[in-house]
């Protein structure tokens, strides 16, 4: 969002791009795009899940990522372990925080106007950013990279091991959530609740518990993302703002509530991002991404892939 800090470019393209052929350049940007896309996907999955089930657009989604990244930073520093190991601490804490927010902030507002819900999560977002600003200042905290910034050089394609891990994790996460939602009893209960809350209650489903779990899972996705991202990107109170706007782009483009749609959209946005960033520069790249976002919102508000699902947001 306005004034949000932009993560620095990961690769030193400028040193070698001149000598490569155009094909190689395209391939390089494609791989970069996929890596970026994986990053956006892993941040967005939870957002789309929460919307699909609870019908809440969590404007504070990015702030959960930010808080989780701080947790990773401090856990790594305090215990001196590999950042990935901190998952065992970060995940339960973020899950719990998510459940708490659902219980005390979202649930009481469940039946109010949608504008109320927007303000609730916008308020949460502002409060979280500024709380962290008060506690830690506007400084940048760098989690040790622990070897995750090692460059994997595959001809024209160059990326970091940490990035590859994000790609693998994003695909695994999307697959895992899909299996969870379709194959387990709890997953089915979550879907049922998302489709018809009153009927779900009549089936004996504890709806408010399901909502808490869903919100918990939704923000746990960024918990996982934080563990993977923190070694690669610097942590600051405003880091979430940068990612969350892109998440909105991805989630709307993928069709709200659609997990697989989000993965696909994230890849598209990642690739667009990589190419536009390379050829047009950072600021204009933002124009391109937001331009696409607005076009999707206006012309395909149901997302690029789905049919007329989840059209509750347009009349």
């Amino acid at each position: 969002m306005a004034g949000g800090s932009k993560p620095p470019p990961l690769n030193q393209r400028s040193n070698w791009h001149g000598v490569l052929l155009a094909m190689d350049l395209i391939f390089t940007n494609l791989v970069n795009g996929l890596m970026l896309g994986a990053l956006y996907a892993i941040v967005s999955v939870g957002l789309t899940l929460v919307f699909g089930i609870i019908k809440v657009i969590n404007f504070a989604h990015g702030e959960f990522l930010m808080v989780a990244m701080f947790l990773v930073f401090f856990a790594t520093a305090y215990f001196g372990v590999h950042p990935y190991v901190t998952l065992v601490v970060v995940l339960p804490l973020i899950f719990g925080l998510g459940m708490l927010v659902q219980r005390v902030l979202i649930e009481p507002l469940q039946d109010s106007d949608e504008h109320i819900m927007i303000f609730a999560t916008v308020g949460l977002s502002i409060a979280m950013i500024n709380l962290m600003l008060m506690l830690f200042g506007p400084d940048i905290y760098s989690t040790p990279s622990s070897g995750l910034r090692t460059v994997v050089d595959m001809g024209p394609a160059m990326f970091l091991t940490g990035q590859l891990n994000i790609l693998i994790a994003a695909i695994a996460l999307v697959g895992g959530i899909h299996l969870f939602l379709t194959r387990t009893q709890l997953g089915r209960a979550i879907r049922a609740t998302g489709q018809n809350r009153a009927a779900a209650q009549l089936m004996g489903i504890n709806v408010s518990w399901v909502y808490m779990v869903t919100f918990g899972i939704g923000v746990s996705c960024v918990g996982l993302a934080a563990v993977l991202i923190a070694p690669l990107y610097p942590t600051s109170p405003e880091v979430g703002q940068y990612f969350v706007l892109l998440s909105f782009v991805v989630v709307v483009m993928g069709g709200l509530g659609s997990i697989s749609g989000a993965l696909l959209a994230a890849m598209i946005i990642g690739i667009v991002d990589a190419f536009a960033g390379f050829y047009l520069g950072a600021n204009v790249k933002d124009l391109v991404v937001f331009g696409i976002f607005l076009l999707v919102l206006i012309f395909r508000p149901q997302g690029l892939f789905g049919g007329a699902r989840n059209m509750s947001h347009v009349s």
């Binding site: 009893q185 089915r188 209960a189 879907r191 049922a192 489709q195 018809n196 009153a198 009927a199 779900a200 009549l202 089936m203 004996g204 489903i205 699902r309």
Partner: peptide
């Protein structure tokens, strides 16, 4: 519901994006 009282709600209220079988599965949740 666990006590043995089930309501068939007004206007059906099925889970629209689930199959009929899944709807029945939810019935015996």
């Amino acid at each position: 519901v666990e006590r043995g009282i089930t309501m068939v709600p007004e206007a059906r209220q099925l889970f629209p994006e689930m199959t009929v079988l899944e709807n029945l599965q939810m019935g015996s949740f």
